[in-house]
Write a protein that binds this DNA or RNA. Structure first.
Lengths: 219, 219
DNA sequence: GGGCGTCTGTAACCTTGGTTACACAGCCTG
DNA sequence: CAGGCTGTGTAACCAAGGTTACAGACGCCC
């Protein structure tokens, strides 16, 4: 690991900076910086988990892939966060059960399995992982609720909210985010537009009536 | 806590038996045995998490409840296991995001929040929780895959498998297990019967062709 | 045996969301 | 300007699953 990456790492993951010298040294000796281009598949279903990734820059999108090629986004991993799927795989000695894709050009610090396990011996690090575990669990529960019970218009309305008044996205991108297809999103957006909730233009959605959208989202 | 419960607890949760004397004493002083009847709601969505439950006997069914009253089972907690939702809530100081129901008459040992946190100071206990966390994550991933991508006939076929050759269940119970409704399960079972995969009778499903069912389940 | 509650069978109908198949608009580039 | 690419609009059709509404079957208990 370069000094440069080391600095970035400690800034992003304060918990590492606080580690005892020995642990830190071990990390520096064995961790490996890799850079992956946008769109690259960093890990995939059924694949054995090779190491634990810290995200230095860029971001990972973790998705569940359907047999027919569609994908349902589970969560994102941004710098300073970690990937619970990776933790779970390493801890449970199980293969991955989701796919990790670099959203943009992404730099990762890959920590080999054995060193990750050793790092878990440090109380501070263990607590850090624990904390992220429990946050993600809540996210996953939310996701289960959405896919099992919510209709697509509700989910779309929710997706549009909380990202400012003007969104620069294509219908396809929205569809991907929902695990659906472009035509349906277009259809629903048209409905929203007819109700005066949004205004549509190329690669752009303007929120006209946030309260109305919230009402739709709430079902 | 009674000596009796103490013995049961240590037998079911070996990790507790191995705790230092001080921790064990604290647990015995503050933990409280409660007994709940079958069907009782032990915790519910949006409710603050009062304590951490160890299951002594019986079992909990943890479900996500839909606005319309239907429920999707997430997982079960049997004696010797723990409830990650509870862990996640206590760790993240968030309210519950699912409902826990006693499947049968169930005895729980409830550990207050503060004592749970203290117990996490013990490396062995922390590892125990960690391990269960990662196992459950895999389950939840599996569930997401099912509800998002699998059709109901595939899920039903999978549900029927691996429980022996003759099942004593009502269609309603199967529907509940899938988060669906009775009529659809009846319709699908009829289809299975017509293909010679199963034989149906009152409160009973006989598996005639496991391999065929497995094929259906695989899609 | 008669009445009641539970379980099952089944048909008609509806909603949601996905699929297929285009048309067209805007824009960039050779 | 032509040609091509990307994004959007839209309609017809389809499949899955849920809803409604019954009817009959079986078992149990009075």
């Amino acid at each position: 690991m370069t000094d440069n990456a080391d600095n970035a790492l400690n800034a992003l993951y304060p918990v590492l900076a606080a580690l005892p010298a020995a642990a830190n040294q071990r990390l520096q000796q064995h961790a490996q910086v890799v850079s992956v281009p946008a769109g690259a598949v960093v890990f995939d279903e059924l694949q054995a988990c090779q190491g634990f990734p810290f995200v230095l820059s860029g971001s990972l999108r973790v998705v569940k892939a359907a047999p027919n090629g569609r994908e349902l986004p589970l969560y994102r991993v941004t710098p300073g966060e970690t990937c619970i799927i990776s933790s779970a795989c390493l801890l449970g000695h199980a293969p991955y059960n989701a796919r990790g894709i670099a959203e943009t050009e992404t730099r990762l610090l890959l920590l080999p399995n054995a060193d990750f396990q050793a790092l878990l011996g440090e109380a501070a690090f263990r607590d850090f992982i624990f904390q992220l575990f429990s946050e993600r669990i809540a996210d996953l529960m939310q996701l289960i609720e959405e896919v099992a019970f919510r209709k697509l218009d509700q989910r779309l309305a929710a997706l549009l909210l909380g990202k400012g008044q003007r969104l620069h996205v294509t219908h396809q991108q929205l569809a991907d985010e929902l695990g659906s297809v472009r035509e349906i999103v277009s259809r629903l957006l048209k409905g929203f537009a007819e109700q005066g909730l949004v205004a549509l233009s190329r690669e752009q959605v303007d929120i006209l009536d946030p309260a109305g959208l919230r009402r739709v989202a709430a079902g």
